[in-house]
């Protein structure tokens, strides 16, 4: 029994070490998402938004971030992983709609509904999206990490983990006085 426990702990330890290494080596991977943006788009002035995120995620899983979009900026969101030859990344953006309607007891309440506003499947899986919001909003982006594809020359050789980046950039919306 003792040997089994020791073996179990050792196994868990290996998983943890792999995961910790994975976490640490994805730093600022979001900066590489620019490679998915066409050259003519890159010429415009976009500032890195510090809500950009990089993380380590298991292949086939969903990675989701919640961020704030101010009405004063135009945003460009792009996604990337370090998987080579894999499926294109599918991402979907949601916003929160506040709606007053009756609850199950018939009392009026304000509900927060999470509603999809864009899915890149609608646009041939294009890896970036430009938008602005009429009012400052809380948005969510869900990134579906491809379950296949090689990353042998990348961070996680022979691993089920990949680096994923969500690059958020902003530029100033002209009509608001910038």
């Amino acid at each position: 029994m003792r040997n089994k426990i020791i073996f179990g702990i050792a196994l868990i330890g290996l998983v943890v070490i792999q995961t910790v290494q994975a976490q640490q080596s994805c730093r600022k991977v979001h900066n590489f998402c620019k490679s998915a943006i066409p050259d003519d788009e890159r010429s415009k002035i976009w500032e890195l938004n510090n809500q950009s995120k990089s993380a380590t995620v298991e292949k086939g899983k969903i990675y989701e971030i919640g961020f704030i979009a101010y009405k004063d900026f135009v945003y460009r969101l792009s996604t990337c992983t370090d998987v080579e030859d894999g499926e294109k990344i599918n991402f979907e953006i949601f916003h929160t709609e506040l709606v007053r309607r009756p609850d199950i007891n018939g009392n009026p309440r304000i509900f927060k509904d999470k509603v999809s506003i864009y899915n890149n499947e609608e646009n041939e899986m294009t890896q970036y999206y430009k938008f602005r919001v009429e009012k400052s909003e809380k948005l969510f982006v869900k990134v579906n990490i491809p379950s296949s594809g090689k990353s042998e020359s990348k961070q996680f050789k022979d691993s089920d983990f990949v680096c994923v980046g969500v690059l958020l950039e902003h530029s100033k919306a002209e009509k608001l006085g910038f």
């Binding site: 979009a69 709606v99 506003i117 938008f131 602005r132």
Partner: peptide
């Protein structure tokens, strides 16, 4: 080419 997200209740 910029999508303008309409606001909901706020």
């Amino acid at each position: 080419d910029v999508r303008v997200v309409a606001s909901s209740g706020s």
